[in-house]
Amino acid sequence: MSSRAAPLPEEGRLRSLVDFYATQMRTSVVAQLQYRAANYFYMLGMVAEPVIYLVVWSTIARQHGGAVNGITAGQFAAYYIVWTLVRNMNIVFGAPFWEWRIREGRLAGDLLRPLNILHYDLAYFAGWKFVVVALWLPIAVGLSAVFHPDLHPSALQVVVFVVAIWGAYFVRSMFQATIGMLNFWTTRGAAVFDLYMATEMLLSGRLVPLQLMPGWVQTFADFLPFKWTFGFPIESLVSNLSTRSLLLGLGAQVMWTVIGYVLFTFAWRAAIKRFSAVGA
């Protein structure tokens, strides 16, 4: 029989973290596969938003002689079809879900584990992305057949895009987690979340390509994190950004990830002292 009053020995730290990410991502895939139909209906629901934008902008483009601010109907199609993938990639453990996590007592269980809670969420949603991409592919093919996107990326653009959609995922994870900390101070954080989401909607390129916004709005957006979670990844694939702009964009994502992580860490340390574990 095992030795008395001693925990089991542990593996090395780095190897363990890689092992945790692989295991948690696998667990997430297994969990998502339990609900294949639900996931698909969810994806179809999500497609409604960009398709509306796409139809509206394509119509306007046609009415303006084929382009709006230099963006053709085919480029709008490319923008919003890529949008569907970027949107699914930047879905993270959202700020409002922290309220659920606290209220349902899930946080207490998470806190008992010897692991930074961010790793837990990052790995789980990262695993989910593999299911999402698999489900997205036939939708993208269908949308392309209907809307004929004008999309001719270079190899570099494809590489940057693949990195940038993960960058968007990390930036958004950090900021949503930081905003989620509000739940430790108020049980009605929804108003702040709504304000955050509205700002993101306008300044990220989600509602409208930033290229169609006034110049000062575009400049303003450059200095905020939102653009790097939506507009930049899309444009890295569909626009003709220079190599310098592509690399600067990736750099901005790294910078905002670090800023978001630092903000989260400070907020988390203060928040956890206020945790009352009620209902846990």
């Binding site: 730290r13 945790f20 948690q24 339990q34």
Partner: peptide, 25 residues
């Protein structure tokens, strides 16, 4: 009165996750 295992998957999968979280050989 609290469930700490993942609801939708077999417990074996949750155990495997705990193995990774606790860094067990």
């Amino acid at each position: 009165n609290r469930n700490q295992l993942q609801w939708d998957i077999p417990a074996l999968d949750s155990f495997e996750l705990n193995r990774a979280i606790y860094r067990l050989r």
